[in-house]
Design a protein around this nucleic acid. Structure first.
Length: 303
DNA sequence: AACAACGTCAACCGCATGCCA
DNA sequence: ATGGCATGCGGTTGACGTTGT
């Protein structure tokens, strides 16, 4: 059985509101309030509109102190920070911005802010790559001038994990750092596994970012280690951490291949604005090759 | 000038949630 | 405890304006 329609669709006007309709609705609500019943309101006002439509028109356009357009830099920062932490919870984001509606913020994000952030991120990434290239060139030059004595131990290439998984966990709003999140990365090796975690804090006010890394804990042996969790579903391994962080786990990438709607939508935002966090995920988001060789020149593993 | 492509934003739709009888 | 209903929310659509060819 389907739900009964909220209004008689045949006798209801749709589409843009006329100034007369706006005036009627505004005058009535300012005089009498909504009466706590939007469904009955159109009849009282004398409008051939659905109650839902009236509500939307009032909340998004007619009610007092509504701001349209002209988002400030500060508002941009707040929207970005909150989006990163809580996702597309537009009503919650709107609650932090007096005079802004969820619809307005949603439109602004989808049409402008997302792109703005993307281009900013691209520029930063280019700058980062350019400076890293300079550092590597410098290191290479220094190494060439230096002869390694025969007894000097050669640096071992980093271990290639069999599989890796990572997640970002937004802090709860009542935590000391409500606009931050924690990042946990797990690597499974042949005879051990390691868990690396870090906490990040973003200030929506001045757009600053800080990160604190915890020691990299390596556990020898795999006895008792729930490896199947990593192999089967990267969400599961972090479910147990929820109690610790007090929030929902948020998978962002896994070498075992997560493709949930949640992780893909968050994947977008991670690739947008915060390279410090994204850089750590990149390795995890690649498929783990079966046979790998270490490229000493580029300090990377290759299939 | 005409048309296409693109951007913006108001409004709609359908689902989830909460309240109340 | 349950079902019906109103409300709130987020995703999507489509009209309209602007810009580019």
């Amino acid at each position: 059985m389907g739900r009964a329609p909220c209004c008689d669709k045949a006798n209801v006007k749709k589409g843009p509101w006329s100034p007369e309709e706006d005036a009627k609705l505004k005058a009535y609500i300012e005089e009498n309030g909504t009466g706590g019943n939007w469904i009955a309101l159109p009849q009282k006002v004398g409008l051939k509109r659905c109650g839902k439509s009236c509500r939307l028109r009032w909340l998004n356009y007619l009610r007092p102190n509504i701001k349209h357009g002209g988002f400030s830099e500060e508002e941009d920062n707040i929207i970005c920070s909150l989006y990163i932490n809580i996702g597309s919870r537009w009503s919650i984001i709107a609650a932090q911005l007096p005079g802004r509606t969820d619809n307005d913020i949603k439109n602004y994000w989808n049409t402008s802010l997302k792109k703005k952030l993307m281009s900013k991120q691209q520029k930063e990434e280019q700058a980062r790559r350019a400076s890293w290239f300079t550092v590597k060139q410098e290191m290479k030059r220094e190494t060439e001038d230096y002869t390694v004595p025969p007894y000097w131990p050669q640096q071992q290439p980093p271990l290639m994990p069999l599989t890796s998984t990572s997640t970002a966990i937004p802090h709860s709003m009542n935590s000391p750092h409500p606009f931050g999140f924690s990042y946990v990365q797990a690597h499974l090796y042949e005879n051990s596994f390691s868990v690396l975690s870090s906490a990040s804090s973003i200030s929506p006010i001045n757009n600053t970012y800080s990160q604190v890394s915890a020691p990299n804990d390596t556990f020898q042996g795999l006895d008792g280690f729930p490896g199947e969790l990593i192999y089967s579903n990267n969400q599961q391994i972090f479910d147990g951490l929820e109690g610790f962080y007090g929030t929902d786990s948020l998978p962002v990438g896994s070498s075992t291949g997560s493709s949930s709607a949640e992780s893909s939508s968050w994947g977008d935002i991670y690739s947008l604005g915060f390279p410090q966090i994204v850089s750590g995920f990149e390795a995890c988001q690649q498929s783990t090759p079966q046979v790998s060789t270490y490229d000493e020149q580029h300090c990377t593993w290759a299939a």
